[in-house]
Amino acid sequence: MAKGIDITLLIEFNTMNEKAGRFKMVPRWARPEHPIFWLESWRQVRNRGLVALQRAFVPVLFAVASLAVLVVMLFSLLIVTSGGYYDLDSSLALVLGFVIAVLFCIQIGAGGMANILTVLLAAPLISGEVELQSWQLLRTTMVSLPEIILAKLSAVLHELRLVLRSVVIIRVISTVTIVLFFAHVMIRQTFYSMSAADLRRFFFDGLGVAYIILIASIVSYNLSQPVIQAVLCGMLGMTASAYARTRAQAISGGLGARLFCWVSSTLLHFGLAYGLGYLFNNWSYPAYAQLDIFRNVPSPTETQIAWAACLTVSGYLLASIIAQVGLILILTGLVFRRARRLGD
């Protein structure tokens, strides 16, 4: 936005929003009337290629998701009917299972694309200012350094709001489908074959609570991921931007860091899942345990095994969220530290 900012109009816009009661809970640096936020959000519009990519993202994602789900539903129904097996319960489990698998693939692809877009938009934020020699000028203003950085980041996230919302929508769809699948398995398979005594035990021994905790943790993990990933990618881009000398270096550094994060987190998740599964198997079947520590432990009951499994998965997911938030905080600290030195 090279035409400059009309301060009177900015104030007018600010008072209009205040009167309307908007942005009351939003911090000052994340509001559209913040000068840095405003400057950055107008600057983002200029890049035509990125704007086209952002605009095409949502329709393409929705079109692919709707067509894929429809085709998968039809195909799984065809598989069921061609086998001459019309059992409603098995058919529903098959359809929901296939749809969850397809939605999972789509949300991974869409999330990856959204992450790349976030890094691409966030990477030139500081390095661009340094390259254009306007960083010193920005530091001479009354706006503090943390506010400058956070306003820039929130402008990027605001610019990508439609993309992020569409990814969240796909996540909501997959989450509700997972809950439906779980409800189907519980109602039509677990409860279906239980006797009255088993049912009473299930509800009054508190085992139901363990399943509720498990589902709640899966739902919160699945729904929180787009937002956490977006902030994480934004901070990765900003870190690369603070440490690079040019915009090109920052973009390549940010994308490289994101790739490294993907690969390392995938390896870490697989390793941890394997290790936890190994320990869990040793603990639940001490007679066949490969580790000596577990051989003398009394064998756990079925209820204990179910509780342990549910709490392990829930704890793992919660730990993943905490680790991601911790990484974001570390990156924020790094950006602040480096950006403070840029002016010296």
Binding site: P59, S66, M73, V95, V99, T177, L180
Partner: peptide, 14 residues
């Protein structure tokens, strides 16, 4: 339009 299509498919599924 694509969102309406997705909504239709999701309503059908759920």
């Amino acid at each position: 339009r694509t969102a309406a299509n997705l909504l239709g498919v999701v309503v059908l599924l759920w």
